[in-house]
Design a protein around this nucleic acid. Structure first.
Lengths: 347, 347
DNA sequence: ATGAAAGCGCTAACAC
DNA sequence: GTGTTAGCGCTTTCAT
């Protein structure tokens, strides 16, 4: 292990000078700099990150907590975070909770030991609300994708309310008047907002209130919700389904098709997220698109900015940043057929 | 920042004793241990990871290099790695190269500065062959998914050769005799082996040698390959396509369908990997399944074991571990139709 | 069973 | 423009 002292000795200068030649934090004469540089070269010197971390009190590493990296939504988010972080000289430690409590505890221990300078938290499960603050201590924190009711940290989320409205408008525009909404279990704010946006818009149109189902945030959750509502696609039953994420929407389509209900012939389905699988599905999924990559990027930049600022700066109001969403119309939605409900003309 | 000295003072013992009470590396009387523990509690003490790292010379962090986390193959791999790592007390720093050279350089700097104890490397691009060793120094390294010709590191890969054979056997068994193989650009060992396995089996059956195309390891790559081979699905043209990964297979199917060629009616397609999108595609994709999660798990365990052993142990022969693959038959393959080539009976 | 003291390798006042 | 020196907070001989 070649240390800064070795380099200093070889170049005939002090360790301080080597340090400054490396960091540029103070002037070093060209002659000396050249000697130092060749000494480093010859010795194959690379500064020890551990020593630097201890000396400066920071690690230039941020933690990213996501429920499951195999979910392509979180993979995209991670991509955005990592790309932004690396551009600013930060590395990211990936922490996937997998909804496992033991793991969360391990992560918290790591976090509290200041192995990371800050944290980006995408809560996938009903988050540890008020506990969060206690567990994290005063570690800089940014929430992304999912807001945590109690927490006083900046958050970056998609416009879930508007997304729900977009889905409702699209379906109403096609002539649908009876809908089933599939929400996520566990009181996730994002799910609640999507449902709220949908209902608000739907009911404002004068259509009858949508049916409500809920389930796990997975394909199986969507499948099961349809199982519990055999009236979907039946005479006088709902002709439209809005699922609060694509996985559930895909599951719903699968269950519908299995029950012999044509999509979109008999029932239209719209999802939320715009994951790759939705583009390959049959029919291709109409969905509300989130710019997940950007969500991750913005969250990372915010955290890094907070880390650079004086800690005092952190008492800023915990602002909530909401990013726009858009509707991507594909083949899983169509006008309802006249034999199963009167088509109503409307704006 | 409460340090070990604070705890020691409060408990009326020396820092040494606090350290040992924490690590259990030597006996501490119950009385003292109790005092130390409550002192830690009251002060909210958490040991500084940076200080520990510097003192013990290790970080308990491993690096994972993958080309792109958004590719679900690598997301699965990452999941396997991370799960195994965390169970053994290691964290993982995610490094996505995105085929960007600047980033690779940043990562190498981090790695050489001993920010990580070891490295798991899934080379997605034509890897930095012989350079690799030089760049990494003597950092413990494990290769996964893709082997690097020069490198003298243990590797964990799927049985690509057998996978290629499986695909060929399946297609031959259905009665196909003319095939197009879509390989990946860039001389990736995995692609070469898959192609080799396929050809070997194909030609051994007496069928005419398959046509060969190649392209990027992406959906677009598969699409373009079909574009360059309009004879696929035409009279006397190939009735089967084997793409060396699912993304390319999906692209090929899309291009075929766009050209009015029915899959599997007129042309059968088999992929490799078994990514989620293949299960949603229409027709659902027949493919060679890799146990990616296990690949990642095994690689992580091997690295961690190497880190625990005496460094001397590392001179072991750089073993190559190959994991079995299996064929998942779905709807993208069928017997060739008689009007486009005589059906031949076989085995 | 417990302590004193010397590092681990770097940074940053504070001198000159 | 360069050097001295004192930490950063922990682990770990070596004593007792």
């Amino acid at each position: 292990m070649v240390s800064i002292a070795d380099v200093a000795a070889r170049a005939g200068v002090s360790p301080t000078t080597v340090s400054h030649a490396l960091s540029g934090k103070r002037k070093v004469s060209d002659r000396v700099r050249a000697r130092v540089e060749s000494a480093m070269q010859e010795l194959g010197y690379v500064p020890s990150r551990s020593a630097q971390n201890l000396a400066i009190g920071r690690t230039r590493v941020v933690g990213l907590i996501v429920p499951d990296i195999r979910n392509s939504f979180f993979a995209d988010l991670t991509h955005g975070v990592e790309a932004a972080a690396i551009r600013h000289g930060y590395n990211v430690i990936l922490c996937t909770t997998g909804f496992d409590h033991a793991r969360e505890v391990d992560y918290l221990a790591m976090i509290r030991s200041r192995a990371v300078d800050g944290l980006i938290y995408a809560a996938g499960a009903p988050p540890t609300n008020s506990q969060l603050g206690a567990l994290l201590g005063d570690l800089p924190l940014v929430l992304v994708d999912e807001e945590v009711p109690g927490a006083s940290a900046p958050s970056f989320v998609s416009d879930n309310l508007a997304g729900g409205r977009l889905a409702a408008e699209h379906l109403l525009g096609l002539g649908h008047r009876r809908a089933l909404v599939i929400a996520a279990d566990g009181g996730l704010v994002s799910s609640d907002l999507r449902v709220a946006g949908f209902r608000e818009c739907w009911e404002a149109s004068g259509a009858e209130p949508p049916l409500l189902a809920s389930g796990a945030f997975t394909e199986e959750g969507g499948r099961a919700a349809i199982g519990r509502h055999p009236e979907v696609g039946a005479a006088d039953g709902p002709t439209a389904v809005f699922a609060v994420n694509d996985l559930m929407a895909l599951g719903a389509i699968g269950a519908l098709q299995q029950a012999g209900v044509d999509v979109p012939g008999r029932v239209s389905v719209v999802g939320f997220d715009d994951i790759p699988a939705g583009r390959y599905a049959h029919p291709r999924l109409t969905t509300v698109r989130q710019d997940v990559d950007e969500l991750g990027r913005r969250a990372a930049l915010a955290l890094i900015a907070a880390l650079a600022d004086e800690p005092a700066e952190r008492t800023d109001q915990p602002d909530r940043h909401v990013l726009p969403v858009s509707l991507t119309v594909r083949q899983s939605t169509a006008a309802p057929t006249t034999d199963q409900g009167k088509v109503v003309n409307r704006g």
